[in-house]
Design a protein around this nucleic acid. Sequence first.
DNA 1: GTCGCATTCAAACGAATGTTTGAAACGTAT
DNA 2: ATACGTTTCAAACATTCGTTTGAATGCGAC
Lengths: 221, 221
Amino acid sequence: MNATRESKPRRPHPAATKERLLDAAERLFAEHGIEGVSLRAITRAADANLAAINYHFGAKQELVVELFSRRLAPINLKRLALLDAAEQQAEGQPAPLELILEAMIRPAVEQSFLCASGSRRFMQLFGRCLSEPDEAVERLIHSHFEKVIQRFDAAILRVLPRLPAQELHWRMSFAGGALHHALLLCGKPSLMPAGMHRRLNPEELIRRLVSFTAAGLRAPV
Amino acid sequence: MNATRESKPRRPHPAATKERLLDAAERLFAEHGIEGVSLRAITRAADANLAAINYHFGAKQELVVELFSRRLAPINLKRLALLDAAEQQAEGQPAPLELILEAMIRPAVEQSFLCASGSRRFMQLFGRCLSEPDEAVERLIHSHFEKVIQRFDAAILRVLPRLPAQELHWRMSFAGGALHHALLLCGKPSLMPAGMHRRLNPEELIRRLVSFTAAGLRAPV
DNA sequence: GTCGCATTCAAACGAATGTTTGAAACGTAT
DNA sequence: ATACGTTTCAAACATTCGTTTGAATGCGAC
């Protein structure tokens, strides 16, 4: 008998404990909030020992940081890539507003709808953390978005040159709020009005968000 | 010497402990989240004994319920009153979209900017709780908003009759997300882009929110 | 005064939290 | 086989949490 495979069916990849912890924490955090999940719950769900988190991450806070970086970095890279593509396709002209907004919205929605792995609920967690008090998380999010916000602000100012900067900032905040609230609803259909979550697919949501926010941004001052 | 006034300057109205607890809890909850505030912190801030909360409310959860009801009920009453006024002024015609949206937005923004008492930060707390996991809070919010949502949906369907119900629900969710995200930003200027919180007054915010969401709701399907 | 009721108080309760510890088990290179 | 660095484990650490308790206090009515 193969001792490593049959006597202990659990722990298929011994070196993957760190990833299992991240996945379990992501799922549980999205469901119950960061403060609402204990290290014991995480390690139990990840089939790991209680001390594993402090061994691999040092502290719970560091796990949170690594969790956010793992998901936020790819999303924002994709946002910038889509924006680059939109601007390159415009050939010197300002990129179309709808394409800019889709570049901002699509990566978040797609990540939110990704069924594979635990990444599906991350955007729900992210939306929750926007309103959380933890200063470390706040700084972390801010650092991840600083560059993205600058690029998108500039792109939109190019296509809507008559929009005052102040007005643009507020409207982008409104758009962000709409996006994150929508992703939140996707994770909590119980908050939706009846019958709203019929045929809930990402492309439809993206289309709705783009047309709503584009109209809002184009509103007369 | 007046013993009740000079020997113990604290506790001016002995019967107001319950209110002091609610005010302190509201402020602390808005700053650190519900789960992030202990009964000890609340009672310390309210200059009351630790057991005061369990004596006056029975449990922490009941304090939260009473806290929400105290603020949410007047806001939603004002919303319905403004909507009634808008529809009455329209004299049988559908009420103007901008007036309907202002009826929804103004009470929340004004409550959020109210400097007197601790009510100023409640809307920040409310926005936070939209994404919180607590099922009791979730049901509580839902029950407070059920009637309001129905009335506003109907009013908007009257002025935008060509808007499919599904589309309307999503766009109202987007509008709600924009509103609550904006109120969240007002409570956390650190999340704003630089220079955005210059001259932050409620009327300007209301105007911006109304024009943004009105344009979004009118967007072509 | 003194009774009765509402409120406050200090102290303690059990349970749960994040973290630490030191030994055991593991895989791998020598 | 032996030794070594890495990883896992059970157990305990000190805090903190929400809640409970029972005595003390305040205060108006009789």
